[in-house]
Design a protein around this nucleic acid. Structure first.
Lengths: 177, 177
DNA sequence: GTGTGCATGTAAGGAGTTACATGATTGC
DNA sequence: GCAATCATGTAACTCCTTACATGCACAC
């Protein structure tokens, strides 16, 4: 009973809804889980091979025109492993690495204008993510997966709060521009 | 002009305020930057050697009783590299990996009680972090570093918002317990 | 015929955690 | 005497990104 690693959790989850190629999985991740659970080609392809070796997924060739293409699907074992993960009561992974916060933490050291610029960059960053997520909203709504939509809205809300905190702190701690 | 890696940024930053051992650096990180910028012994010690090779820090032996102990301090170059990083206008690293969100994203698949349990675990997680940060507040306040305190309060606020979102979503999307 | 997108992969290297190994000191 | 804490480090391993390499299909 090996625990699923980061990339395999999202792969099995997405394959639960239907067959996909590695390329498609990457595109889906980039438009949905990206901001709280990223994945790169360099992990997706090797992980697909590994999961197939472990019989959690199967694949079949399904060329599009003359272009080779491989579709992956969950096996029963894969489905079981996915469900077991979804329902397991283990501690939830939470990892954050935020350079904006780190710079702000050290901002005693720099001039107020620099601190303000850092905070503004941080604010832009989070506002930018929130905006990008907001653009995704109609697409996700049309897909009809209620929890995917709620997750997206959660992300929008969190990044908006983050940006708000930056804005407020700029004013309260560093005076008005 | 090598860019500083993750661990070196926090090491140089902390050494700006004074000499420390690797062990102390780890303890300080665990009580301050931990939740947005973690570091482990397995990275700190090798990184201290590397930074010394690059002449960004120096060290001296300073045994406490018979117990060997090595104190590290910034060199001028190290100070300059730290300042350059603090003021550089580059894109800010922001990485998040949140298993609570990932599970919630897939919650269409499971029974509502399971979805609610996942959300409750997520809420507890963030409430727990917020509570831990709140405990740190008096300590950080006494240190007199205004931005460290503001950062801590930012963390408390963010994790509290996170927990609030969980609570609200539990009620709105999954009905009352 | 050319660029964009679809499609699959590997190689290299850095980042990061965990477990292990060692040993002194301090307080109970 | 024993446990907790101070203190330094390495080894093994996973994770992850980035860059590279390849090639077809389709629209302009």
């Amino acid at each position: 009973m090996n625990a699923l690693n980061n990339t395999s959790r999202v792969i099995l989850g997405l394959l639960h809804y239907g067959e996909h190629t590695g390329y498609e999985l990457k595109a889906i991740v980039d438009d949905s889980t990206q901001f709280f659970w990223a994945a790169s080609y360099g992990r997706i392809y090797p992980e697909l091979h590994r999961l197939e070796d472990q019989c959690l997924i199967t694949s079949r060739e399904e060329p599009r025109g003359g272009r080779p293409r491989r579709l992956y699907a969950l096996t029963e074992e894969g489905e079981a492993a996915f469900m077991a993960w979804l329902c397991s009561p283990t501690e939830l992974t939470f990892e954050l690495r935020d350079e904006g916060f780190l710079r702000f933490f050290f901002a005693d050291v720099v001039a107020p204008e620099t601190a303000r610029a850092n905070l503004a960059a941080m604010r832009d960053r989070h506002q930018g993510i929130a905006d990008r997520l907001r653009e995704l909203e109609p697409l996700v709504r049309d897909e009809g997966r209620a929890f995917a939509l709620l997750t997206l809205r959660g992300g929008i809300e969190l990044h908006t709060s983050f940006a708000e905190w930056c804005r407020r702190t700029e004013q309260e701690a560093l005076g008005e521009g």
